[in-house]
Design a binder for these strands. Structure first.
Length: 742
DNA sequence: GAGTTTGAAACT
DNA sequence: CAGTTTCAAACTC
């Protein structure tokens, strides 16, 4: 704890000093003279710690103070996955795990990942706010996040790292990064780690003026990033042949060599270094053994890490919408929860233009760190420029693609066939990509080729002012951005109040108007497995479609568009939904197809988890880890906030979950309530509606009473699952204190 | 790119 | 709450 305190103090000082760093960078021009002053030189020499603490505070306030969504749109992109990876990553040097992992060298990676789950949860509980807060906010090229995480973790080793880094500079960040997560088979984890690594090294590069590698290219190249800390890459340090590396990765290898050199020359706590180093190499070796033994895994790794271009593009395409959300929701986050400090930033365009690294004529990947996952402060502005393919690639890997598989692998019991998992995860991913017509690679590719290919959704509203659900951007909970072709658009940060009002109005009509339209649940897969023939859909549209002419075979159909089959909730005619007809039992059921291909518990768990973490909102795929089954209502933003909510801070909307299954009785007891409470009960109604597929016998009541589906008996869910669901529901009211009472 | 079709959203 | 209108995306040419 002493170390922690020291580290905290140091870090705090550094934070306080460096709090201005982002702003300084954004407004570099006017401050250029100041930057020349000795003070700024000193500040620049400090490890540039971002004002995470303030973010933390605002997040906390945000979560606690608002019964409803505090900002017009909140960000779905605070990646818990990433955060957890971060956290886990820095847990790696923990000696307690050294023993464990050394027991079985060949399975250390998996075991660690299994450990990581528990670590993640505990860490998220303990440090959720910080971890969430630390994710996106500030300039991408800065190191502070690393410092923050290290100091946040109570791990004494990490505290030491933190202190050391503060003193010695970012090289140690690179060290910690290099030594830690490299053990992970999962390239995505590695990639996340490599962010820090690259950041740190990049910083080092800047400060020491060590050239020899094109860092910007490095940052822009997903594969390089991924490989940077991948076991393969790490191994490449020992094996110059680099058989496993693609040509483009040589740069990273050299970078790693440099890094190791710098590490070697660094005055580092010998015990710690030797210990972690030993472990690191041990793990690398074990990973190499695994890789050598498993060609499939290698292939998967190659695909994930280095980039099967098509796959990456697919992932990118599948995540287009999501990226749009992330990109633009950030602005709302700023406008909302961090309104004050980020006001300039919310006007992202100009601020981004003033970004020292930003050059609109340059490809986006030339902005250092702009493609680093979770660094989205200026992405809104970026979105307004032509989206670089590689950036999309990057984001796809870092945010959408990676979390899925990493979580899959993370949660995989030790000993399961990794290649199988990789394949299953990939298969599912592909299925989802294909299924979500919104994200259809073909389509998006076509769009990309045709020039329309912006990574994000762009509306073309003309009359709605982008303040109605007609507007896809608005409906998706994101601001419109420059590439939108809308006229008279009010869906912009500067009109936040208007947007908020419009949103409030819409939500008053339909409290879950902005909730995911398609709910995917893990039960659906199990359901298919255990009661095949009952119902085909792996997911359901919240309300169902109403197609008359399209036969649910075109994207006019929201079910089809969401990649789900029609259900009894649908009032469509002549349904021929390729994902599952309203009338048919498992006519196609792509999940069923997937099931045919993939056998075994490992795959089952993978599918379950994967479906579990996929939520589709307005066609936007949200990949989230720890998407708790009891909170299917959680929109993307709340899913993001889950780590926060595990503590005492609940996402605002969880207020409406508090009533759980008793909401109907509550409504009966309180028939005439204030509007706000109506709102609540309406949310509960929709909650029930959404939960219906999972609960089975819950009567579906549409919030607007427009669409009421009949009460159906057992919709095919395994009784045991229903039971578990009920248990979860019963646990929901454990947060009644946040429910407004009048 | 313009025009048409479609179904959700909004309105009455 | 059913019917109608409005709207913008999806689609077609």
């Amino acid at each position: 704890m002493g170390d922690d305190d020291d580290g905290s103090i140091l870090e705090r000082e550094s934070k306080d000093v460096a709090m201005d760093t982002p702003q300084r960078k954004q407004t570099n021009t006017p401050l250029s003279k100041l930057e020349e002053s000795p003070v700024f030189n000193y500040l620049n020499n400090l490890s540039p710690i971002v004002g995470v603490r303030s973010v933390h505070i605002t997040q906390t306030i945000n979560s606690l103070n608002f019964a409803s969504l505090p900002s017009v749109f909140t960000s779905p992109h605070v990646s818990t996955v990433k955060d957890s990876k971060f956290l886990r990553r820095h847990q790696l040097p923990d000696p307690s795990k050294l023993e464990f992992s050394s027991e079985n060298v060949n399975k250390v990676g998996k075991q660690q990942e299994v450990l990581g789950i528990a670590e993640d949860s505990s860490e998220l509980r303990n440090f959720g706010p910080v971890s969430a807060a630390a994710e996106p906010p500030y300039l991408p090229n800065e190191l502070p996040r690393t410092v923050t995480y290290e100091s946040v973790n109570r791990d004494s080793d990490l505290a030491v790292y933190s202190v050391m880094e503060t003193k010695c500079g970012p090289e140690l960040t690179g060290l910690s990064s290099a030594l830690g997560p490299s053990v992970h088979i999962d390239s995505r984890i590695c990639q996340i780690g490599s962010e820090i690594n690259v950041e740190g090294v990049s910083h080092f590069d800047e400060e020491k003026e060590v050239s020899g590698c094109d860092w910007e290219n490095l940052l822009s190249d997903e594969g390089n990033l991924s490989i940077f800390e991948s076991p393969i890459d790490s191994e490449s340090l020992k094996d110059p042949s680099q058989k496993l590396l693609e040509p483009g990765m040589s740069c990273c290898t050299s970078v790693l060599h440099d890094l190791h050199k710098s590490i070697a020359t660094q005055a580092v706590n010998p015990c710690q270094l030797s210990e972690t180093d030993h472990l690191s190499f041990q793990r690398k070796e074990s990973n190499m053994n695994e890789i050598a033994e498993n060609g499939d895994l290698l292939v998967s790794l190659s695909n994930c890490v280095a980039g099967d271009t098509n796959e990456i593009v697919d992932a990118e395409l599948a995540s287009n919408m999501h990226r749009g959300l992330r990109r633009r929701c950030l602005v709302f986050e700023m406008a909302g929860s961090r309104r004050k400090p980020l006001t300039d930033i919310s006007n992202v365009g100009p601020s981004m233009l003033s970004h020292p690294h930003y050059n609109p004529k340059k490809p986006k990947h030339d902005i250092p760190g702009c493609n680093l996952s979770g660094i989205g402060l200026h992405l809104n502005a970026l979105a307004s420029t032509s989206v670089n393919h590689e950036v999309a690639k990057s984001e796809a890997l870092t945010t959408d693609r990676q979390p899925i598989s990493s979580s899959d692998i993370d949660m995989l019991p030790a000993g399961e066939d990794m290649s199988l998992v990789e394949d299953a995860g990939q298969a599912l991913e592909d299925v989802v990509n294909e299924a979500l017509d919104h994200n259809s690679p073909k389509k998006k590719r076509h769009k990309l080729e045709s020039g329309e290919g912006e990574a994000c959704k762009r509306c073309k509203c003309k009359k709605s002012k982008c303040l109605k659900l007609y507007c896809e951007c608005f409906a998706a909970g994101v601001y419109c951005i420059e590439p939108c072709a809308c006229h008279g658009c009010f869906n912009k940060p500067i009109h936040e109040d208007v947007v908020l009002a419009a949103r409030t109005q819409i939500e008053s009509r339909n409290p879950l108007a902005f909730a995911p339209k398609v709910i995917r649940s893990s039960e659906s897969v199990i359901e298919i497995r255990e009661e095949s023939g009952k119902t085909p859909a792996s997911a359901r549209h919240k309300r169902g479609c109403n197609c008359k002419k399209s036969g649910c075979t075109k994207k006019y159909c929201e079910c089809y568009q969401g990649g789900v089959g029609c259900s009894v909730n649908c009032r469509c005619e002549q349904c021929k939904n390729a994902f599952g007809s309203k009338h048919g039992y498992t006519p196609i059921g792509m999940v069923v197809e997937l099931e045919k291909d993939i056998e075994g518990e490992a795959c089952k768990s993978v599918i379950d988890r994967s479906l579990h973490i996929i939520t589709v909102q307005n066609g936007a795929e949200q990949n989230t880890k720890f998407a708790l089954p009891e909170t299917p209502l959680l929109s993307d933003r709340q899913l993001i906030e889950l780590p926060l909510s595990t503590n005492s801070m609940r996402p605002p909307r969880s207020t409406f979950q508090a009533a759980g299954s008793s909401s109907q009785e509550f409504k009966k007891r309180n028939p005439s309530h204030a509007k706000f409470e109506k709102n609540i009960t309406a949310r509960e109604d929709e909650m029930s509606e959404i939960l219906q597929p999972s609960i089975g016998n819950v009567k579906s009541v549409s919030p607007n009473s427009k669409r009421v589906s009949p009460t159906h008996g057992n919709t095919g869910f395994a009784p045991g699952l229903r039971g578990s669901r009920k248990l979860i529901l019963q646990s929901i009211p454990s947060f009644p204190s946040l429910t407004p009472k009048h």
